[in-house]
Amino acid sequence: MSHRLQFTAKKLVRMALLLLGVSLTAFLLMNASPLDPLQTNVGQAALGSMSPEQIAKLEEYWGADTPAAERYLSWLGSALRGDLGVSLLYRRPVLEVIGQRLSTSLWLLACAWVLSGALGLGLGLLAGANRGRWPDRLVRGCCLTVSSTPAFWLGLLLLIVFAVWLKILPIGMAVPIGGGQATLLERLRHALLPGLTLSITGAANIALHTREKVVDVLDSDYILFARARGERHILRRHVLRNVALPAVTLQFASIGELIGGSVLVEQVFSYPGLGQAAVSAGLGSDMPLLLGITVVTAALVFGGSLTADLLYGAIDPRIRKGAAAQ
């Protein structure tokens, strides 16, 4: 048990260091930007409506007079106390904006994550089990095509077909325009196309990787032996069991690209989530918000890989029992 705790603690420390690195890198990149937030239009408009204290704090973060190191440390100090600054665009605390946007995106991300994982695993198993035959060629062909297609263009196509031609689904947004309280059904209708786009692009990637793993497993000695013993249900008994571990890794590693995809898809469908906020923050030079979004996103990605590592330990008997034996 102490072995596992030690492992987890080590991973947590590494994750904290990585987050620190991400925030510093993002800060330096923004700092290097010739686009001064206090000089851009959005910044100036924002200044007018801010309290003097807020402006003073902003100057402290982004003003040209303070050295970069000092500014970063002051940001880090506040960040550790749970204050990521004030968004220039939304004129509200960054954490609040992120919280609200993330809760809108979470719907989309969670659905796409589950759907792409299930679809990807299923298609990957189908292709791998039929290696070289037509289901394999079909799945691989489709997945390669999808992964060669820009996610936003796929979104545009779906939009043209379902919203413009067939007129069965709304053009975008999370809720009907101007329509007060949205029902669950309406929310679902609005999330359907963006969710579908994200799921398809995500599933293609997972299916291709799963297929490779399935083929590796099928080439193994133990599958040969299982066949030599006339075992039935080899796919269920052996392949699924041995593909489970890499599938877990793949599934959690897909979080990063899923969030990346959501940036594009939310832009296409005008879905007011975290991704769209990131684009607005970038275009409007809203540095505090962009920095906050980057750090939160990285935390989600690292959290995902940590979860995968921990699950690995729980699933793989070599780690589970091996640790107990030591």
């Binding site: 030599a228 052996h238 571990l245 008997p317």
Partner: peptide, 15 residues
């Protein structure tokens, strides 16, 4: 007809 293979790699590591 039964096969006796070479070694432990012929057993499923996860079972």
């Amino acid at each position: 007809v039964a096969l006796i293979p070479q070694g432990v790699t012929f057993l499923d590591p996860m079972m």
